[in-house]
Design a protein around this nucleic acid. Structure first.
Lengths: 184, 184
DNA sequence: CCGGCCATGTAAGAAGTTACATGATTCA
DNA sequence: TGAATCATGTAACTTCTTACATGGCCGG
């Protein structure tokens, strides 16, 4: 039972879902490909944590809809009491920023602008999700509200940093000479 | 040449360093164990991107100090022009929050308090690093300044979210009944 | 004297990605 | 007609973690 397994159980504790949909839904929280999800679900099923029923569809391929079992729920509850791993962020951008003096300033600028655009996209996507969710739901899940808020906090921080960094780049380019220019 | 390889080259573009020190320094940016770093450095050396000299020490074990070559610098510069992968954050906490209705509210509270403490630690650690760096350095690297700021933005966002979440938990516990309590 | 730090490495295993494989429907 | 979505699966590979292995120095 690894973290991704618990992630799947966590999703299934809200609603039964196909492997495909689980794969899509877990992306914002714990990115994983279908090639990782499908075998894991089979494993969880053989362990008795989930069970599936085949749902036949005419317009689309048939699907396996998984639901969590009592054993799965118990495992989930126990997991909640265990200590939580520290978060890990892997961002290629920070490695690039670290050695940015080696490259063309125009490349750095482009990099930061790309990040800015990415953040705006993410923020808008989240906003849409939040609107849709709160409209469709009379008394929403407290956990989901917390998460959507968490996502917003994180994206906004990244966005604000990118803006701040670009502003500092502008300052730099406006001022002639190197960082020792203020020694006048 | 994977991202970690470029990360090592990025660090080495500032100062020559031992595998051990590189391992320690890269943790905040791209966590990796020594068992991954050492073979990679050997590989980078056989590819001509870095070279090492043996530094004999009396009080401590001898070490291999790696420095970047021209070929390494060129590879680094080229990498800076390439498109940057999107950042990935994996945080077990979000998976737990998603299904928190399944568990004891006291567990959730403990979880959030742990996160809060972790964030405060991280923030203090960063502050210390920033102070030390800016004091020791007359004209600091622009890249490093940007990064330290980025770290602060991210940690503060996480911290503020945790505080906000705990406040909401308090509200919940103060109000009797469920979310339908406001239907009075 | 025991645990932690320094310092390097290998081996085995788990986790994650990319590619291979299939096939119907829908939209431009 | 060609690409995207839905839907499931396996195989090969890369990446990352844990464990094995060694050994001196230092502080409590």
């Amino acid at each position: 039972m690894n973290t991704l397994s618990y992630g799947l159980l966590s999703l299934l504790s809200h609603t039964a879902d196909s492997g495909y949909d689980l794969m899509l839904k877990i992306q914002p929280f714990w990115p994983a490909k279908h090639s990782q999800i499908y075998p894991l679900l089979a494993q969880l099923e053989s362990g008795g944590y989930v069970r599936h029923t085949l749902v036949v569809q005419t317009d689309k391929p048939d699907k396996k809809v998984y639901s969590i079992t009592d054993k799965g729920l118990n495992a989930l509850r126990n997991w909640l009491t265990l200590p939580t791993d520290e978060p890990v962020t892997r961002d290629e951008l920070v490695l690039k920023v670290f050695c940015m003096e080696q490259g063309d300033p125009a490349d750095i600028r482009r990099m930061l602008e790309m990040r800015l655009a990415y953040c705006r996209d993410q923020l808008q996507w989240l906003q849409t999700k939040m609107d849709a969710y709160t409209k469709l739901n009379p008394s929403p899940s407290f956990g989901i509200l917390l998460l959507m808020e968490k996502g917003q906090f994180a994206i906004k921080a990244d966005l604000q940093w990118a803006e701040w960094a670009l502003a500092r780049l502008d300052e730099r380019e406006a001022a002639p000479g190197s960082s020792r220019a203020d020694e006048a």
